[in-house]
Design a protein around this nucleic acid. Structure first.
Length: 551
RNA sequence: GCGCCUGUAGCUCAGUCGGAUAGAGCAGGAGCCUUCUAAGCUCUUGGCCGGGGGUUCGAAUCCUCCCAGGCGCGCCA
């Protein structure tokens, strides 16, 4: 059991004895300064009003009650305006090693999510070109969040929504068609509305290789259809490869077209009409979003009869709910933030709580090289592709960088910096801690020293301040996972891993392991290191970053 | 004009449900390898938490007004 839970249970019992209840708002957390002990609680200050006495007196009463009991606590102190500061016995912390050793890969798992069914939809870039660096950030956040939430006891499914319907696809087909005609020596020009990217040249080349000049003989509509389908297929394959190279998994690929073909969109629109949430006006169909959270009504079907993306987006979200998810997480580029109110309105119109849709807005990535901005313009086709960045800086560094920031803060991504092996680029700091431990175990094996669970008996030798620092840090891991899941914030985990790696590096520098003064101490430190390696590896896995055994 | 996000050390950023004297890395300064990986460690300099008001035992955190930067406000996608 975690120290936090242990204390909350203990305090709840004691408070009950005193005729008080554990206040939900109270917190049990590590205090800023070590001299205040392992964990601090503010319950006395919160309860002071209802108990009608001053916080310090109340804290003292609670303390007296606790001291009458048998517990893992070494000391209880009151301090400041009414904090209760707790210090645990050393064996409480030492036992974390046994727990890690028992649970191994599962250490850090919890039932925090209570099996809640969650769907995370992310990337969902239109299949009109390769993924760029901004998509990469969303991909890293979504994939890691899925891993973290699964670990924290949620039932998570990941999904990519494929916009394979609508005008954009037509434009894409025409752009490829023009490229194809160019290859055939026909004078046709891309205009501003077309996709300019070089990758369409590859698409056109592929068609030419397959069909020769055959398309020129066809009706234009047929040729366009071939161009469109080939382009979408090839681009989609590229996107899938980019994602798998980035170790990003989407369990479901959901086609917008299928929503239309299966009449899910039209059924949804009918339902909105029935509920009075949609109305006809000037030949178009409108969604009455002002009745809910939006500041103006939105068009669902244009007067020319075509659907807006919003119409299929509503149908798509309805379909998600119909599949039984309790929580929908959408990860969008921050430039789409204006859609949040209308989407929340749509959710409400579907009869669901707006809180059952969480939109994570991922800020755009500012790509730099040695501090100088690299210009990016999607329209001109001059964006920097994710695959190029991966090739240059590597998957691990790229993912860790994306996951070391709050997703809604702007990210300066300096290519030269991300390649550096310094603390500007902490991924190596964390991985190095893991590699150091593995290397040490190789050395131990050479010397014929082995350490396994049979050495867990001498853990009481791990009693220095540095031992305890590292033990307490490891004990935090399950709570960090749960908090990252609850806040939909993978970056908490990145910062945690940097701290744990720091504890390990400090420990390593000062405390010899294989040349420690006694056999028991050697083994104790080895099992300590084994536990640290496990936690680092589990944490890195959740970030989608490798834990190398050698560097 | 309206709305959303951001503003914390020279730089890049953490700061969870409002908690104690605001943190980390980098950069600057001073040290540490005959010893398990120096991609490391130790010490140190550096702050009006954008600004003003408010809420309370207590505010970087909540409310309000202002300032600066980014983004969005279409029968576009």
């Amino acid at each position: 059991m975690s120290a936090q839970k242990y204390l909350i249970n203990l305090l709840s019992e004691v408070l009950a004895q005193m005729g008080l209840e554990w206040p939900e708002k109270a917190s049990v957390e590590p205090p800023r300064e070590k001299k205040f002990g392992d964990l601090a609680c503010n319950a006395a200050m919160i309860l002071a009003k209802t108990a009608r006495c001053n916080p310090r007196d109340l804290a003292n009463q609670i303390k007296e009650h606790i001291l009458k009991r048998e517990s893992y606590l070494e000391s209880v102190q009151t301090a400041g305006p009414g904090f209760l500061n707790f210090t645990f016995k050393k064996n409480f912390w030492q036992s974390i090693i046994q727990q890690i050793n028992n649970e191994k890969k599962a250490f850090g798992r919890s039932g925090h999510g209570q099996g809640k069914k969650v769907q995370i939809e992310f990337v969902s870039a239109n299949p009109t070109g390769p993924l760029h660096i901004g998509h990469g950030r969303g991909a890293a956040v979504g994939d890691s969040l899925a891993r973290i939430m699964r670990f924290a006891g949620y039932e998570v499914s990941t999904e990519y929504y494929l916009n394979d319907a609508g005008r954009q696809m037509m434009v894409l087909g025409r752009s490829a068609w023009i490229r194809y005609q160019n290859i055939c020596g026909i004078d046709a020009e891309l205009d501003e509305g077309h996709y300019q990217g070089e990758y369409l040249l590859e698409v056109a080349q592929a068609i030419f290789t397959e069909m020769g000049r055959g398309l020129l003989e066809m009706e234009e509509s047929e040729a366009l259809s071939i161009c469109r389908k080939t382009a979408v297929h090839m681009i989609l394959e590229g996107i899938k490869k980019d994602l798998s190279d980035f170790h990003v998994e989407h369990q479901v690929w959901f086609s917008e077209n299928s929503l239309i073909e299966d009449n899910i969109v039209s059924d949804t629109l009918d339902m909105l009409l029935e509920k009075g949430m949609a109305y006809e006006h000037e030949g178009a169909l409108w969604f009455r979003s002002t009745a809910l959270e939006d500041d103006k009504d939105r068009v669902l079907r244009k007067s020319d009869g075509t659907l807006t993306y919003f119409a299929s987006d509503i149908a798509y979200h309805k379909n998600k709910y119909d599949r039984g998810y309790d929580l929908l997480v959408d990860i969008w580029g921050a430039d789409h933030h204006g859609y949040v109110p209308r989407m929340k309105s749509a959710v409400a119109a579907l009869g669901k709580s707006p809180d059952s849709l969480e939109v994570i807005l991922v800020q755009l990535v500012n790509l730099l090289r040695e501090g100088k901005q690299i210009a990016m313009s999607t329209r001109a086709g001059e964006f920097v592709a994710l695959r190029d960045v991966l090739r240059e800086v590597g998957r691990d560094a790229c993912r860790f960088m994306f996951l070391s920031r709050k997703s809604d803060s702007h990210l300066d991504f300096d290519l030269e910096m991300v390649k550096k092996r310094t603390m500007d680029n902490p991924v190596y700091y964390v991985q190095y801690a893991h590699a150091r431990i593995c290397s040490l175990f190789d050395k131990a094996a050479e010397k014929g020293i082995r350490a396994d669970s049979s050495f867990l008996s001498s853990l009481d030798l791990l009693d220095t301040q540095q031992d305890l620092d590292i033990l307490k840090k490891m004990a935090e891991f399950p709570d960090i996972i749960a908090a990252s899941a609850r806040n939909l914030s993978p970056h908490h985990l990145s910062f945690y891993l940097m701290e744990l790696a720091g504890s390990l590096h400090r420990y390593y520098t000062v405390n010899p392991v294989l040349t420690a003064e006694s056999h028991d101490l050697i083994r104790s430190r080895m099992v300590l290191f084994m536990a640290v390696a496990t936690v680092l590896k589990n944490g890195l896995y959740l970030l989608g970053v490798s834990a190398p055994e050698r560097m």
